[in-house]
Design a protein around this nucleic acid. Structure first.
Lengths: 344, 344
DNA sequence: TAGGGCTCCAAAAACGTTTTTGTCAATGAA
DNA sequence: TTCATTGACAAAAACGTTTTTGGAGCCCTA
């Protein structure tokens, strides 16, 4: 099953067989065909370890998934679709995705994990997800001269390859819609501000408010985990405050569903007495009560973009500076928001 | 950074260094310590490719995730937690998880993918998820003499290593609860019967009915995808039928949430006029309206069991026949089910 | 017809480990 | 004193590729 067996079988030298298989052009087309045919028949597969040792190429792309907030989930639902897209593209290039996982989100363990991953020679390229505004991982990858693309942007001196969804526009749109509904007190349930996406969403939110000369109110901008529990808790806190909002723009559908539950608990009718919007257009959002107005963004396509970019980077067909892709977003209006009760 | 550098630096032969690093006992403790110390200082990491070529061990475990029904998701939420647990355990043994993905669920492509994976020498062991009653993958793995553990059982002649949750008991419990509430017409919204888990859930359901001498009715046992859309559609079909059920036991929380939406649409009050239960105890289930009675099963722990089993299998510490673990389930009563309206 | 440039193939080195085999000195028993 | 045993290390082969270098024919031109 090794290349020497195959060479013997064909009466050729191993070098010729190798060059034939790798499609070099100094081997005659007829021989090439003969080699391919026999290789297929005999079921020959190059030993990945040997190839890797010799060529230095691993044909793997690595990703380390951040620990979810409950400490349990391997990937949240968005990373889930994203990786699907990445994998699909990578596969066409003969690459595989090797996924590791952080068990906890502290920085020293993270650094150790990435150091090991990067310097250990496990992968040819890296996918960095859930970027922070200041993210040590990009320096790590850059220092190791390892190609990488980030999902989400970050602040760094040199150009880098990124793919992102238009978080800012998404929250600009969602907030604007509430303003147009006549809402004045609009809350933002956001993720932790260390993450770039949260920063950008806040930016979109404030930009919409500023456009209509609405004063931002720090008390209306809350940060927490991206799940139902957090959405419930934060919304609850909002509802009991002196100046409760009439609209809440949430960072995820899960948060919004938690927020809806909090409203239900207090018999506040969502979509009439209060507006709530989500983000992600998850399948759950369509079946919420009321169906959730949310933001759709093609995260699977984002994954495909990432996969393609990774391949181009690895093959040297592109420089990091060439790879900047901002996926558009579209607002999906449903029933969880509507005109402000004060204006009716 | 290679072992020869390290050996030169230490004034030792590479063989001694290698043996020291691998903790052989024919190297003096003092030398061992010296080697370890210097290796750490110099930041030496064995080249995975070389090690792999020589030893034949890849230090990777492979898993191929089935394509989700929407063709997009890399992993559904349960696989997600599961893989987290697997990864955590594997890491302690120096193993990584390499995840590939099926883009479509047809058998010939699946077989090709697994063939390539298995014979390509990418991994030392395999994790098989979403087992079918008759599952060609286990023969494939067995033929290649590759250790594997399945998540979910299957029908096969020889012993194999499996970890599973007690699907049968889960649906026995859920169904029994409805019977005790006085329900007579209880529907089952299940996954496709080719999957073992679906078969077992049906078995639990029918066993509960049989125990109370309730005739099973094929019209009440529906199969479909495990998501909200499917739950909605199937429930809808059920509600318009001549003999509509008064209770519906669903295969996933997502299905149940879809079913609840279908009831809401027809102004049927869930928990009063109709009972609906889910499975999985997802965070969404707690925030559904009404909060969903569901089944909790520790899928993360299942993952840990799988990871440990994989390691033991690889190390030859256990035989496949030794590894059978059935994770218990517990019913989480909430508000989506209750006494049958006919009995009150 | 000599030389140069092709075309096609082969020899051999190299990648960085692990492992088998061997060596040499020190130790212990006779 | 001699010989076998043991403890600690080293030499060298091997894993299966890729790649560099080389070389044999052949055709073409001058």
């Amino acid at each position: 099953m090794s290349i020497v067996k195959l060479a013997q079988d064909l009466g050729l030298s191993i070098s010729t067989v190798s060059r034939a298989l790798n499609d070099y052009d100094d081997v005659a087309p007829a021989t090439k065909a003969r080699v391919f045919k026999r290789a297929r028949e005999i079921g020959y597969r190059p030993n990945p370890g040997a190839r890797r040792l010799k060529s230095g190429k691993t044909s793997m792309v690595g990703v380390i998934l951040p620990a979810a907030t409950d400490g349990v989930r391997f990937v949240d639902s968005v990373a889930s679709s994203l990786l699907g897209g990445v994998e699909v593209e990578l596969e066409t290039g003969g690459y595989s995705l090797i996924a590791s996982m952080q068990t906890r989100n502290d920085l020293v363990r993270e650094t150790a994990l990435y150091e090991n991953f990067i310097k250990g020679g496990w992968v040819d390229a890296l996918l960095l997800v859930r970027t922070r505004v200041s993210d040590s991982r990009v320096e790590l990858a850059r220092a190791a001269k390892l190609p990488f693309v980030t999902y989400g942007r970050t602040e760094t001196s040199e150009p880098y390859a990124w793919v992102d969804t238009d978080n800012e526009k998404a929250f600009y749109l969602a907030t604007l819609r509430q303003i147009e509904f006549g809402h004045k007190r609009i809350a933002l349930l956001n993720g932790p501000l260390e993450y770039t996406f949260a920063r950008l969403r806040e930016k979109g939110y404030t930009r919409a408010l500023a456009k209509h000369r609405i004063q931002t109110d720090r008390l209306l901008m809350l940060n927490g985990d991206l799940n139902e529990v957090s959405g419930y808790a934060l919304c609850r806190a909002l509802l009991v405050s002196a100046q409760a909002p009439t609209a809440i723009v949430c960072a995820t559908d899960a948060m919004a569903i938690g927020a809806i539950a909090a409203c239900r608990e207090r018999n506040i009718e969502v979509g009439k007495e209060i507006s709530i919007t989500g983000y992600g257009n998850s399948s759950a959002s369509a079946f919420a009560d009321p169906p959730l107005t949310t933001i759709d963004h093609a995260v699977f396509d984002n994954g495909r973009h990432i996969g393609q970019s990774l391949l181009r980077l690895i093959r040297g067909e592109a420089k990091p500076a060439d790879i900047h892709y901002l996926e558009p977003v579209v607002l999906v209006p449903r029933k969880s928001d509507g005109p402000s009760p004060k204006t009716t």
